[in-house]
Simulated scan of single mutants.
Amino acid sequence: MLEEHTDTTIVVPAGVPGRHPHLQRRTYRRVTVLTDPAFKALVERMLQLIPPQSRQGSGTFAIHLLRTFTNVVTGVHQDGEQYVFVYVLDKHAQGGETILYSGDGPRNRVFGIELRPGQLLAFDDVKFLHEATPLRPLPGQLRAHRDALVCTVNLPKIVGR
């Protein structure tokens, strides 16, 4: 059963490049999504992509709407989550290739894709390091941008922080 979470404070995990080396608490503005049937169906479908043997009885599904203009991420990293979903809503740019590396280091590239609007990439954050290449303007344009939903499913040890 899906229900809105009571808390919008999350802990930023330590050791993520570009972030402080200690845990930070961030509180975000609440936007309810489960009252919208289409959004609820999207969340349910994304959760169905998790292999049945990896599903948890409870957890947190976080949704982040990100508009980026240059650097999509600060470097190769893991988010400290169970699964990560990247769904591109809109893109007027070249680049932004999402690259997955084996969990033992960024020298072993496993997969890469430059997601287009309407495309979704889901991956097990525990098994992969990941990054995205910078965005570049399309020919004849001055500015690049990409809008994406980046959703995460928390690891059981992280739920209820």
Rank of each mutant, 00 (worst) to 15 (best):
K91T: 11
A93P: 09
A144H: 06
L142G: 15
R29M: 04
H22R: 11
V76P: 04
Q119H: 12
Q78W: 02
L121F: 00
T98Y: 00
N71T: 05
F85T: 03
L155R: 15
V86G: 03
S58I: 07
L89N: 06
V110A: 04
R55E: 09
P21H: 03
F69H: 14
L120T: 14
R161T: 07
D7I: 13
D7R: 12
L129F: 06
L65E: 10
D90S: 10
G96S: 09
P139H: 13
P139Y: 12
A144R: 08
H64Y: 04
G105W: 08
T70R: 15
P51G: 02
P13A: 03
L23M: 10
H20N: 11
V110S: 02
I10E: 10
Q24T: 10
E3W: 03
G160M: 04
G18H: 06
G95I: 13
L66T: 06
L138C: 09
G118H: 11
F111P: 04
P137K: 15
I158C: 01
E81S: 13
Y87W: 13
H92W: 06
Q119L: 08
L120Y: 07
L142M: 14
V33W: 06
L42A: 14
G15N: 06
T74F: 03
G160R: 10
L138F: 07
Y101K: 09
T35L: 07
T74M: 08
R107P: 00
N154D: 12
V12H: 13
E44K: 13
H5W: 05
R161Q: 10
Y83F: 13
P137D: 13
P134C: 12
R146F: 01
V12M: 15
R67Q: 07
V159P: 00
T32Y: 05
